[in-house]
Computed example of a mutant assay.
Amino acid sequence: MRRLTLAPRPDWQARLEALGFDFHSGGGVPYWDETAAWEFTTAEIDRLDDAAVELHRLCLEAAAHVVAHGRWDALGIPAHWAPLLRASWERREGTDRALYGRLDLAWNGSGEPKLLEYNADTPTSLFEASVVQWQWLEDRFPGTDQFNGLHEALRDALAARPELARGLHLSCIVPHQEDEGTVRYLEGVALDAGRATKFVPIDQIGFNDRLGFVDQHDEPVHALFKLYPWEWLLREPFGAAMAEAVAAGRLTVIEPAWKLLLSGKGLLPLLWELFPGHPNLLPAYRERTRFPAGSTVVAKPLFGREGANVSIARLGPDGRPDGAPLVSMAGPYGEEGWIYQEFTTLPEAGPGRHAVLGVWLVDGAAKGMGIREDDGLVTRDSARFVPHLFR
């Protein structure tokens, strides 16, 4: 595993835009960064694949434990959401089958990859991890390979779902360039899978007693892909009606409601409780005082996103930060509570710059990887996407 320094393709912007990837830069700063690439061996890719499949298995066991024992509080989930999550979980092999997710891992090529978090509900960077970096590989390194079977896996998964036969609505917040890009990409994949599609902004989904949920043209919504977190959705004015429709099987939603069991940071201490010492896990607790003095600990809000409100601190004898935090990010999260995870080093990508490896799962199988680099120790929405290859 090594980081290569490269010259970008002379026409890289035009090449990306020809694919429909028009959010490659923001504020004059490239988000897509092909001045570098990460190179792996086949054995290293196999190890990442194995780690991702193992971690997904552990996460499903943790979800089953929560449902069986009613441990919603361990994940910071309100008890009145339990009937929806239980019904969705029971249909996970049928209409509530998961489509995709992204495991963010820390790994520098030695030892075991460690789970940082599981973006199980609304992961982005899918388009760039799929066809965009594959185009780059074919242009720059023909004859090599890439951990990337995302497009075909997504297409086949959508084609195999009979509950989408009446079509699929896709939705997100508008305007939001990155989210819209992700949703429009998945819309194209669904069309490749033979599914009729319609895009509807999240704030234009309506409800009436006769048809149930409808789009902006008053057409019924039978199946919905939503790039909008379940913990937000269920707090919307129509959240209770959606929960009732999903629990009753009248509405299919991708990702399904049971993915809320995996998408919050409360999953991390639960995994450590159930599988203590597992080589792919980092110690994590709901109470910071569980760590010994001198530990370096990452504080994460239960339902935070894109690095907001994350802090890193060294602990003193009382289990509280010993002096000022090493890192402290601003943001709107934390009201629901916090978890604390042991700090681990990330691969260095230059002075003060670090990389996170995101391994993508489709239908529970590892099907690709995307790498994001950021200045500092916390990966934020300002991170850059860097392609990869293996030999």
Results as ranks from 00 to 15, higher is better:
131 V>H: 06
131 V>F: 08
132 V>Q: 06
134 W>V: 11
135 Q>A: 12
135 Q>L: 12
135 Q>N: 15
136 W>A: 11
137 L>E: 01
137 L>A: 05
139 D>I: 04
139 D>F: 08
139 D>Q: 10
139 D>T: 03
139 D>E: 15
140 R>M: 11
141 F>Y: 10
141 F>S: 05
142 P>D: 05
143 G>K: 13
145 D>Y: 05
145 D>W: 00
147 F>C: 07
147 F>G: 08
148 N>I: 02
149 G>I: 12
149 G>K: 13
150 L>M: 14
150 L>C: 12
151 H>W: 13
151 H>K: 15
152 E>S: 10
152 E>F: 02
152 E>I: 12
153 A>Y: 03
153 A>R: 03
154 L>E: 13
154 L>P: 06
155 R>L: 00
156 D>G: 03
157 A>H: 12
157 A>L: 10
157 A>R: 08
158 L>Y: 01
158 L>W: 00
160 A>K: 15
162 P>F: 08
162 P>D: 01
163 E>R: 08
164 L>H: 07
164 L>F: 03
165 A>H: 09
165 A>M: 06
166 R>A: 14
166 R>W: 15
166 R>Q: 15
167 G>L: 05
167 G>F: 02
168 L>Q: 06
169 H>N: 13
169 H>M: 09
170 L>H: 06
171 S>W: 06
172 C>K: 07
172 C>W: 00
173 I>C: 14
173 I>L: 15
174 V>R: 08
174 V>P: 04
175 P>L: 02
176 H>I: 14
177 Q>P: 11
177 Q>S: 07
179 D>R: 01
179 D>Q: 00
179 D>W: 01
181 G>K: 06
184 R>D: 07
185 Y>E: 07
186 L>C: 14
187 E>H: 03
